[in-house]
Simulated assay, not measured.
Amino acid sequence: MRILVFSDTHGDSNSLYKALLSQPQADIVIHLGDGEADVESVRYEFPSKMFLQVRGNCDFGSTLPLSEEFVTEGIKIFYTHGHFYDVKWQDDLILAAAEKREANVLLYGHTHVPLSTYQNGLHILNPGSLKGSHGSYGFIDITPQGIVTNIIYRNQSHS
């Protein structure tokens, strides 16, 4: 199963649309905030995909939750924008929140800096920001062999 992870599209729904087109095998799309309207503008073009979202600090007036949990194929994913956990300055709060929830995967955005790592039994993915010429997004592949997280940079060939 492939899960696409986006954050901080900040009005660039065209890049979101193109990224979704380039990943037809993905079943689930998670947007980590600062792009609620972008998701709304493309989601109906992809009716077979499940869309999950949280609000970011720039999603003014949003009623989306600040964080959510999702379980698929026995894997618990904790996802949030990250501003509530002060991720630009530290990772202690967000790591503690993921540990408290017994998550296997932690997803967050807000920093606009892509990150894909594994730490103390936790897969951590920040897809960066899709907006701009150096935009990026992430994906999670859940297979019988395990979990793989990765970053895709705009204009990079897609697997």
Rank of each mutant, 00 (worst) to 15 (best):
G135D: 06
N104L: 00
G11A: 05
Y118K: 11
P127I: 04
V39S: 08
G138C: 13
L64T: 03
E73F: 07
F46Q: 11
R43C: 02
S157I: 09
W89Q: 06
Y108W: 09
N155T: 08
G82T: 01
A97L: 03
H134C: 07
Q53G: 06
G146M: 02
D27H: 02
F84T: 12
I94N: 09
R2F: 10
E36G: 00
K131L: 13
N155S: 12
G138F: 08
E68Y: 10
V39K: 06
A97C: 06
H134F: 12
Y85I: 03
L20S: 10
L95M: 14
E99Q: 13
L52Q: 08
L130F: 07
H83W: 03
E36P: 00
S129T: 15
T111S: 15
G135H: 02
A96V: 00
H158E: 13
I124W: 10
E45D: 14
Y17N: 12
H83I: 04
I140E: 10
I3R: 11
F78S: 10
R101H: 10
P144W: 02
N150T: 10
G11D: 08
G138T: 11
Y118I: 09
K131F: 05
H83Q: 05
S22R: 13
I142D: 10
A37N: 12
L93T: 03
H158Q: 13
D86F: 12
V113Y: 07
F70K: 11
R55C: 09
Q25A: 15
M1I: 08
L4D: 05
S7N: 04
L21A: 03
E73D: 14
I140G: 04
T117N: 04
K100R: 14
I30H: 00
T80F: 08
G135S: 07
F84D: 12
V5Q: 05
R55F: 00
V148I: 13
L122C: 02
H31N: 07
F51M: 05
A19N: 07
I30G: 01
G74R: 04
Y137A: 09
H83G: 03
Q25F: 02
T72Y: 08
D86E: 11
H31E: 06
D38Y: 00
I94P: 11
L21F: 01
S15H: 12
S48M: 05
